[in-house]
Simulated scan of single mutants.
Amino acid sequence: MHLALVTDAWYPQVNGVVRTLDTVTGLLRQDGHDITILSHEGFRTVPLPTYPEIRIALLPYRRLSRLLDEAAPQAIHIATEGPVGFAAWRYCRRRGYPFTTAYHTRFPEYVAARLPLTLAPTYRMVRGFHSSAVRTMVATPTLRSELQDRGFGNLVEWGRGVDVDLFRPRPQAERDFLGLKRPIWLYVGRVAVEKNIRAFLDLDLEGSKLVVGGGPQLEQLRRDYPDACFVGPKYGEDLARHYAAGDVFVFPSLTDTFGLVMLEALASGVPVAAFPVTGPLDVIADAPIGRLDRDLGAAARAALGIPAEACRAFALQRSWRRSADQFFSALAPFR
């Protein structure tokens, strides 16, 4: 099959959405499928307001339509609700082509965290975007139920996986490369307001707090929390080493639809502490690999000492192969 994947989230962005799309399309290519990825690359772009590290395409419809006509795909998947995604939505609607979408991020909550807007009008817009799709893919059963309650339809589950070869436990000597006092309480991800990182940094915990990642809040949080260790964004083997250095992975987000970083931490042998919200409820639930509590500090302290072997065994059951198969089966070919 020739698939056109349309996404506003792509390299050089580094986040769970990009890693998911890159990994899944890589596996589909190994299966012999042809994938055309259409992102903001090749378009005039402007910095995203309040998040200048991310650039968004400016008026992409005409060029995107030409690119899709030239590609002549057999199926179209629209991954995001940004300018490129909306251009593809308009293209499919005008030509009568079926398409699929995915609900990767809580766009209404992210907008509300940055602008004085209520959730209702943004949810109406997002619901209208996805309602035209043959299927909208969601990461977890909890998110599916939540979106159904908000009037979304045609929802199917598309799970996530983890690279267990890259993310793995390390010997203690390797884990101590940072020289930080233990226990090390770890956060990995975008350093942005919607990630609720202050809830982690405000916790009264013995040891060291380690923040791995970049984003618009990085310099402000460095100033506000001088006792925490901020190492910026890391990639590949270096990122995996930082995961394995942690004793507990603290996931403070209240808005993530999944939280791929939790699986990466578990594969590294690091238990998870989080709030009992969408994402952690599905990834962790009541499995003996972490703790969920409305008191994040209590969850973190309770997670300390959970065996690395249990975390690793759980992650080994979450394969990207299964994720890629789910994604492919949900597509809507029209040629």
Rank of each mutant, 00 (worst) to 15 (best):
V138M: 00
G153D: 07
P121M: 14
V156P: 12
V162P: 05
F152S: 01
Y123V: 13
P141N: 10
S145G: 15
R127E: 03
V162M: 05
V164K: 12
E146R: 12
F167M: 06
H130Y: 09
M137A: 08
R124M: 10
S131Y: 06
P169W: 06
V164R: 15
R150G: 01
G159A: 09
L166W: 03
V162F: 02
R168Q: 14
L147M: 04
V156N: 11
S145Q: 12
T142H: 14
E157L: 14
P169R: 09
V156G: 14
R150C: 00
L143S: 02
L119Q: 12
V126Y: 01
F167W: 03
T136G: 05
F167K: 03
V156L: 10
T140C: 09
S131H: 11
H130V: 03
L166A: 10
N154R: 15
L119Y: 09
D165P: 11
S131G: 04
N154I: 14
R144V: 03
G159T: 14
G159H: 10
E146P: 00
R124S: 11
G153S: 12
S145C: 12
L143R: 04
D163I: 08
A133E: 06
R168Y: 06
V134K: 13
R168G: 07
D163R: 12
E146G: 04
N154W: 11
L143Q: 08
G128K: 06
T122N: 15
L119H: 14
A120Q: 10
G128E: 13
D163A: 09
S145D: 15
E157Y: 04
V126H: 00
S132P: 00
D165C: 15
L119S: 10
M137N: 07
T140W: 03
R144W: 04
R124A: 14
V164T: 15
W158M: 11
R150S: 01
W158H: 12
L147G: 02
G153V: 05
Y123N: 15
G153Q: 08
D163Q: 09
N154L: 13
R160F: 04
E146C: 03
V138T: 06
